[in-house]
Amino acid sequence: MQTRNINLTINGKKYELVVDVRQSLLELLRERGYTSVKQGCGVGECGACTVLVDNVAVDSCLYLAVWADNTTIRTAEGECRDGKLSPVQEAYMEAGAVQCGFCTPGLIMATTAFVEENKGKTLSRQEMKKAHAGNLCRCTGYQTIINAAEEALKK
């Protein structure tokens, strides 16, 4: 087994790790208890494992752990601070955008990246849909998810 030393920040906490070079960022995060990061396909089809790497949304199943050296990672766990939900989490809750909840943490991170990138802009629903097309949800039909994204963008 080949390993490499990496340094990274996960939800504000610093880590110095020795990782198996074959390991994905998804596996690294789940092994350390960040279980909001879900595996739905393992090959980048579903988006359930979406996290932010330096504020960019990525499928962590397709992202090698070693690539995360010197990066800052954000997951859904870290978006709630001191018991206060992030504006995106709040919007999902209010919009009724949560059913089984398996796709939810990944979608919340996709929306978070989207909102941070487009703050203050007026976007059409079609543009919002395009920004979320990499995340599958089988429960909601996406209606309330886009409603949540729309509300979060206004906050």
Binding site: S36, T75, A76, E79, C80, Q89, Y92, M93, V98
Partner: peptide, 9 residues
Amino acid sequence: DVRAKVTGK
């Protein structure tokens, strides 16, 4: 379950 689900708990 919604608060637990949006925070990934």
